[in-house]
Structure formats: C-alpha cells, structure tokens
C-alpha cells in the first residue's frame, strides 16, 4: 500500500471516530486531529489560529484560545488537565479503555510512528535541489540500509564527491553551508529553504561571506570534517535532518563548527536543534544562526571552547 493511501484511510478512520464523539454532548469539539500527523504526536496538533482570528477591528475581546481536548472520561479537574495538555506535545491525558489505550490514541500513535519511519526512508526531491540551485554529492554509503547500519560510512565522502566539491566550490570561504538529509528527508523538504534563505540574509547583513552551498546525500554530522579538509572554511554550518521522533518527524538541526578538520572533537561542535514549525520557527532559526556564526568568528572557537573563551 502506498503512503498516501495509508494516510487517507487513517484519516477516514479518525474522522469516523471523531464524528461519533461529537454525538456525546459533554465532549469538547476536537480541533485538527484529522489533519496529517507529522507535527505533534499529541492529539492536539498545533493550533490553527487563522480559524479563530475573526475580523474584529476595534473590539477589545482577547484572542480566543484554541480548544484542547482530553480523552479521559469525566475528568475530575478538567481545566487543569487541559492546562497540562497545552504545555506539552507528549501523549498525556489520553484516557484508557480498561488497561489498554483507546483505539483513537493507539491509531494516532501508530500513525506517528509510521511517519517517523517514512521520514527516515524518504528522499529529498530533485525539485528542491534545483530550486535552491544546490548540487548533490553522495557519501560512501550505497543505499539507505547501509546508511543506517554503517554510520562510519556516512561520515566519509565518496571519491567522486570529493572531486566534485573541490572543482565546484569556492575555496577557503568564511562560511560554508552544507545541507544533508541525515535521518529525516522530511526535515529538509519542509524547513531547509526557509532556514537557508533567512541565514543568507543574515550573513549578508552582517557582512559575512558565504562559500558555495551544496547537498550531501546520506550524510552524518562529522562529514563536515572531510569537507573542512577540502575547502578549509572558517566556519562550517551543516543543516541536517534529525532522527525522527514521535512528536516530530521533520525536525532540523544546524551543526556549527569553527575550522572543522579531521580529528575535530565533538565538544567543539555546537548545535541548534528543534528547528521546525512546532519548535523554533525555521525563519527565525536562520536569522539567529547568523549571529551565532558571527560570535564563532569573533572568538575563533566553537562549542565548549567558545563557551570557555566567552567567559
């Protein structure tokens, strides 16, 4: 069965379950549960404010809070429970049927799990790479199975890749941006364009020079060390898909390192993680990265060394 069909069927099932609930008078109307997973594992997906913001020009009424729901039957302190639900995307306040989860929450759980698996096995589309004008190279990994089994190969570039990079890219740039699918192609598809464009603008306004950005398929974080050897950038920024979880399968991380070379220790790398719609908004993350890079250049250090020097 292909992915979209699975989504469709699950959506129908969830809808059906919801429509049954609506007949019960005491339950709050569910918000966006039927909307496709990907974002929050909880049954409460990120609120769609556009639905609530009506055109109320001069009125002083406060913004309506989106309705959150709980599946606990007849909760004792409903409002407090809903308050707790609002604070976390974790699966709390989901109730139970005897000793088991309810059908709806179980289905949702499996759907989120499936989305995470999909993100790992998915691929970044050609369209995106073309649109961003990034060329693509491969690590020493041959296929997805190998990528998962052999992390070491994901840290090394193929001979072909090395050649292409050194032929195509500007040498010794101030800032080298690299993009890699990592463990979530979804993260790249959804977020990387906004992060990159915003980062680019930020670098421009700070007067920092960027090298030639490109895409690495099946990369691991430490692949930046090899690129450091070839291109000798002052700072490398690797935008890479995070290991998907049940809360989000499209979370992106930005790893930064001052003069990455072979033998760079992990403590000298730093990361801005949780970049996605429900975490740090991609556009803001890009803008923030610019100032982090500026700081790295100023102190000529990253990671733990930067923290030490900053003191």
């Amino acid at each position: 069965m292909d992915a979209s069909l699975v989504e469709k069927i699950t959506e129908m099932v969830l809808k059906e379950l919801h429509s049954k609930d609506k007949e019960k008078p005491d339950q709050q109307v569910p918000t966006k549960t039927a909307g496709m997973v990907k974002l929050h594992g909880n049954l409460n997906t990120v609120p769609d404010f556009s639905k609530y913001a009506r055109n109320r020009e001069e009125k002083e009424t406060p913004e309506e809070e989106p309705a959150f729901e709980t599946f606990v039957d007849d909760p004792k302190e409903k409002e407090q429970l809903l308050d707790a639900c609002k604070k976390t995307p974790a699966r709390i306040g989901i109730g139970r049927a005897g000793v088991r989860p309810k059908t709806k929450t179980l289905l949702k759980f499996r759907l989120d799990h499936a989305a995470a698996v999909d993100a790992v096995y998915g691929e970044v589309t050609e369209q995106l790479l073309e649109k961003m004008n990034w060329f693509s190279v491969q690590t020493m990994v041959q296929n997805q199975e190998e990528y998962i089994r052999r992390p070491d190969l994901g840290r090394k570039l193929s001979e072909e890749a090395k050649k292409k990079i050194s032929e195509t890219c500007v040498k010794a740039p101030q800032v080298q941006v690299i993009i890699s699918d990592g463990l979530s192609s979804e993260a790249i598809e959804k977020n990387v364009e906004d992060v990159y464009l915003s980062l680019q603008q930020s670098l421009n306004s700070l007067g920092l020079k960027e090298g030639t950005p490109f895409f690495i398929k099946n990369g691991r974080v430490a692949v930046m060390d090899e690129i450091g050897e070839i291109l000798e950038p002052e700072v490398a920024v690797l935008l890479i898909g995070e290991r998907p979880g049940l809360v989000s399968a499209e979370s992106l991380s930005a790893y930064l390192c001052y003069k990455p070379r072979k033998g760079t220790i992990e403590a000298d790398r730093m990361v801005i993680s949780n970049i996605h719609e429900g975490g740090i908004p991609p556009v803001e993350a890009g803008a923030y990265l610019g100032s982090v890079i500026q700081k790295i250049l100023k102190y000529e250090a990253s990671g733990v060394s930067l923290v030490k020097k900053e003191r």
């Binding site: 915003s198 603008q201 930020s202 306004s205 740090i280 908004p281 556009v283 803001e284 890009g286 803008a287 923030y288 610019g290 100032s291």
Partner: peptide
C-alpha cells in the same frame, strides 16, 4: 510569534 529577528533583519 517568535519571528522578530528574522523580521527585523528583513
């Protein structure tokens, strides 16, 4: 929303 830096830079 958390977009002040990006908006300010823009």
């Amino acid at each position: 929303n958390d977009i002040a830096k990006a908006l300010g830079q823009s």
